[in-house]
Simulated assay, not measured.
Amino acid sequence: MGTRHVVVMGVSGSGKTTVATGIAAATGFAFAEADEFHPAANVAKMAAGQPLTDEDRWPWLAELARWMTERAEAGESTVMACSALRRSYRDVLRSGPPSVDFVLVDGSAEVIRERMAAREGHYMPVSLLDSQIATLEPLQADESGVVLDVALTPGELVRQAVAWLGGPPTA
C-alpha cells in the first residue's frame, strides 16, 4: 500500500495541532506543524497582528508540499496541522505527494475565539480570527476530505478523523 498524507486544516484555534498529533499517535504517521515552517518574517508579521498575504504564503506552502513529497518518496505517511484556508493553498499542498486528504475542523467562531483566548504562548492573536474565517474556503466536491465539528472533544475529533481515514494501519 502507498503512503497517506493528511492535512488537518482550519482557522487558528480550531484544534488542528491537537487533532493532527492525535492522528499521528493513532496511525504512526510522521507529524509536522506547518507553523514551524514559516520564515521569521511571516511569524513577526502575524505576531504584530498583520494577516499574511498570498506572496508571504506561496514559498511556505511549497516547502510544506516538498516535506510531504520527501516523506512519500521515503515510504512514510504524514499528517500535518496547516490552516490551508483557500482552495489555491490546498492545490499547492496537493502538488507534492501522490495524494492528500484533508480534515477540516470547523464550526462556531465563538467556540474558537474562547479557545484562542485560553491559549498561552501562541503568536496568533485573537484579532486575526475574523480575517481567517473570512478567508476560509470550504472543501469542494473534488477534494478528498471530511469536515468535523469544532465543538466536539479533542478525543472525539481524533476518533472521527481516524475512522474516516479507514482506521489505524494494520500490521
Score class of each variant (00 low, 15 high):
residue 15 G to V: 05
residue 16 K to H: 03
residue 16 K to V: 05
residue 17 T to G: 10
residue 19 V to G: 00
residue 19 V to R: 09
residue 19 V to F: 00
residue 20 A to P: 02
residue 20 A to E: 00
residue 21 T to P: 02
residue 23 I to S: 08
residue 24 A to S: 15
residue 25 A to N: 13
residue 25 A to F: 03
residue 26 A to F: 07
residue 27 T to E: 10
residue 27 T to L: 01
residue 28 G to A: 01
residue 30 A to G: 02
residue 30 A to C: 04
residue 31 F to V: 10
residue 31 F to N: 05
residue 31 F to P: 00
residue 31 F to R: 02
residue 33 E to P: 03
residue 34 A to G: 15
residue 35 D to I: 07
residue 35 D to V: 07
residue 35 D to A: 08
residue 39 P to Q: 12
residue 39 P to I: 09
residue 40 A to K: 14
residue 41 A to Q: 13
residue 41 A to L: 11
residue 42 N to F: 12
residue 50 Q to S: 12
residue 54 D to P: 10
residue 54 D to S: 10
residue 56 D to S: 13
residue 57 R to I: 11
residue 58 W to H: 05
residue 58 W to G: 08
residue 60 W to L: 08
residue 61 L to S: 01
residue 62 A to P: 02
residue 62 A to E: 15
residue 65 A to V: 06
residue 65 A to N: 03
residue 66 R to W: 01
residue 68 M to C: 09
residue 73 E to C: 07
residue 75 G to S: 10
residue 76 E to T: 15
residue 77 S to T: 07
residue 77 S to H: 06
residue 78 T to D: 04
residue 80 M to K: 06
residue 81 A to E: 04
residue 81 A to Q: 04
residue 81 A to S: 15
residue 82 C to Y: 01
residue 84 A to K: 12
residue 85 L to V: 06
residue 85 L to P: 12
residue 87 R to W: 12
residue 88 S to T: 13
residue 91 D to G: 10
residue 96 G to Q: 03
residue 96 G to R: 04
residue 97 P to Q: 00
residue 99 S to H: 11
residue 103 V to S: 07
residue 104 L to V: 08
residue 105 V to A: 05
residue 106 D to C: 12
residue 107 G to Y: 09
residue 109 A to L: 06
residue 110 E to V: 14
residue 111 V to Y: 05
residue 111 V to M: 07
residue 112 I to L: 03
residue 112 I to K: 06
residue 113 R to D: 13
residue 113 R to I: 02
residue 114 E to K: 12
residue 116 M to W: 04
residue 116 M to T: 02
residue 117 A to C: 01
residue 117 A to W: 06
residue 119 R to K: 09
residue 121 G to F: 11
residue 122 H to L: 11
residue 124 M to F: 14
residue 125 P to V: 12
residue 129 L to I: 01
residue 129 L to R: 07
residue 129 L to Q: 06
residue 131 S to G: 00
residue 132 Q to W: 03
residue 133 I to G: 01
residue 136 L to V: 10
residue 137 E to P: 13
residue 138 P to Y: 06
residue 140 Q to M: 12
residue 140 Q to G: 13
residue 141 A to W: 03
residue 141 A to K: 12
residue 141 A to R: 13
residue 143 E to W: 06
residue 144 S to P: 09
residue 145 G to M: 03
residue 147 V to R: 13
residue 150 V to H: 09
residue 153 T to L: 04
residue 153 T to D: 14
residue 155 G to C: 01
residue 156 E to L: 10
residue 156 E to F: 00
residue 158 V to Q: 10
residue 158 V to Y: 08
residue 158 V to I: 11
residue 159 R to V: 05
residue 161 A to Y: 09
residue 162 V to S: 06
residue 162 V to D: 13
residue 164 W to F: 11
residue 166 G to V: 03
residue 169 P to N: 06
residue 170 T to I: 11
